[in-house]
Design a protein around this nucleic acid. Structure first.
Lengths: 342, 342
DNA sequence: TTGTATGCGTTATCAG
DNA sequence: CTGATAACGCATACAA
């Protein structure tokens, strides 16, 4: 194994000291142009590479950022990851990616291990049921900046980047109303989670503003998948008064509902209009494309990274930034161009 | 900022030396049970955390693994990432994820920066047009193990984990033949890439074995997206003799073809059967679900990580492992239950 | 302008 | 069993 070249190797070769070499390599002004040039040349020649650990040990800065998500391979999160990586890499930071599988214990473990690895900052979307916040305080003690994204916890002194779930829920509902739907059911996610609470609030507010509260009906489903959607659809069809639109807090559950409704011969969007949330890639690929709310995960990743970098470069100022990104309504076939408006 | 606790702090407190503390912390036998217990207790009390940089500096082992993919947020890759992470994390390794955007220059840069960061190993799916292999030799010089996955380069002494693209292409074609299709067009990807070459080979072999070579027709498309699929479909429909099946080397292009065929009133799978490759999530969500070849990316990630770990733990033995995973045929509506077999 | 010495936190080696 | 010391590679305050 070829040993790594150190500044000592260069020094020995040029019959100078390591300190001088270091100076040459770091644009230190106290050095003659001649030696500097010489050092730079031989460094290149020997293919010298800085040892980052020595650097990190000395400076306490690792140039590593920890990124924690529930699931790496969910489209929403992997797109955020992409945004983060594209922002951090050019600044010389490596992104260390970890997933919690929605497990609070694992989250705590990972978080502490990242701190232990002296990351310069941590970006995290907390697990569904994280309640214990002591690992976050630990980061604060060590002065490691933390930025929440998407799923946040209320923690003074900690920044967050989220989308405006309220506005998303409001716009989705208002869109349905604009399209002529009146009796709108909301199939929400677990209302213990802030994001679903906000979407639900937006839904209710839009109904109220249009004097349609009397039709309001919320169904809370903790799992968002196709099967759950089918089950919900069956439940809805059994009701005496059939709604004419459904606003779902997730795209998969929307898809399940659509599949079941179609199976029962109900026409979409004519008889029932449906809008999801999340703008999953498949929503636009379906023959009956599904309207949804886009959460711009790529942008969220970029912004989250920027907020962190700002925090890192101002280690003394305790910035607390709460960025709320707008969501975007994507109207597709599942809600527009009704043939038979009621 | 709370200073980090070091072994010296513990030593001072107990009026012993750092060396003894280190021994206690590392299960070194040369220590009395009494002092060991004492050290462990105070360590916990002071919330002592090992400084990994000091460790890395001393040992040369970073406990970091570099993972390089073309795009982080492609389902195929993000699922591989998940597999890798789940294998490495329990072994105490952090995964540093980077993406190349299919840019050879960026790939080289990233690769060298990872080496520079003293990663203990690198997992990489090379960019589409990587030809210069010198960065890989650099890793070999520094004795950093590299494992290719999915897209590999021929490099002696370097392991790889791929799927059996030949078998995938073969099975896809044979499946079409089994379903009664005879005149099968293959829409392949860029044949400069090994994976597409292999799939094409599988296609040709299956035809030959069934004496259907005379109907063989390959169309090479370098971009795999919906638009390209639509264009290809138009091209195919213009031909004098219309094929009765199409094997696509990608799912998106298959989707584009299906959309165009449907638009032109052609019945699938009755008039034309279509099978894709990759088993993208959307293929099973469509109303007309698309048959495809599953590449088991999750398993690929796990296996790749395992191969690397094996290599790391045998630093002297130059293991060269070529793992080829089986692909899996997923038959769906786009190819089965033809109503009007020709 | 350059050299010398020191410390970052840890562990391994040697001496006691 | 424990203490002292060197070394990992680098940057910097201080001396020359």
């Amino acid at each position: 194994m070829k040993e790594n070249v150190t500044i000592y190797d260069i020094a020995k070769l040029l019959k100078i000291t390591a300190a001088t070499v270091s100076r040459a390599l770091n644009n230190n002004p106290n050095i003659s142009q001649k030696t500097k040039k010489l050092v730079l040349e031989t460094a290149k020649e020997l293919n010298y590479q800085k040892n980052n650990f020595a650097l990190a040990l000395k400076s306490g800065q690792s140039k590593n950022i920890g990124l924690i998500v529930p699931y790496i391979n969910r489209n929403f999160f992997s797109t955020i990851i992409r945004g983060v990586e594209e922002e951090l890499y050019p600044q010389g930071y490596q992104t260390i990616i970890c997933q919690t599988n929605e497990d609070e214990k694992k989250e705590k473990l990972i978080f502490e291990s990242l701190i232990n690895n002296n990351v310069d900052g941590i970006l995290i979307s907390v697990s569904r049921d994280t309640e214990n916040l002591e690992h976050f305080t630990k980061a604060k003690e060590r002065n490691i900046p933390v930025v929440f994204f998407d799923r946040k916890k209320e923690l003074i002194g900690t920044s967050s980047v989220t989308i405006n779930d309220f506005q998303g829920g409001y716009n989705a509902t208002q869109h349905l109303i604009d399209e002529g739907y009146k009796s709108i059911v909301h199939v929400s996610g677990d209302l213990k989670l802030e994001i679903y609470k906000q979407r639900n609030k937006g839904y209710l507010t839009a109904l109220k503003e249009n004097n349609l509260e009397k039709f309001s009906k919320n169904i809370s489903e903790t799992t968002s998948n196709i099967e759950a959607g089918k089950a919900v659809a069956k439940k809805i069809l059994k009701r005496k008064i059939r709604p004419d639109a459904i606003f779902c807090s997730g795209d998969y559950i929307a898809l399940g509902i659509i599949q079941e409704l179609k199976k029962q011969g109900i026409k979409i969007p004519d008889e029932i209009g449906i809008i999801g949330f999340g703008n999953e890639p498949f929503t636009e690929l379906l023959e009956l494309s599904i309207s949804s709310i886009d959460q711009s995960p790529y942008e969220m990743g970029k912004v989250t990274a920027k907020v962190l970098l700002e925090q890192i470069s101002n280690p003394n100022a305790r910035i607390e930034k709460k960025v709320v990104l707008d969501s975007k309504l994507i109207a597709r076939m599942s809600t527009i161009n009704r043939n038979n408006p009621i």
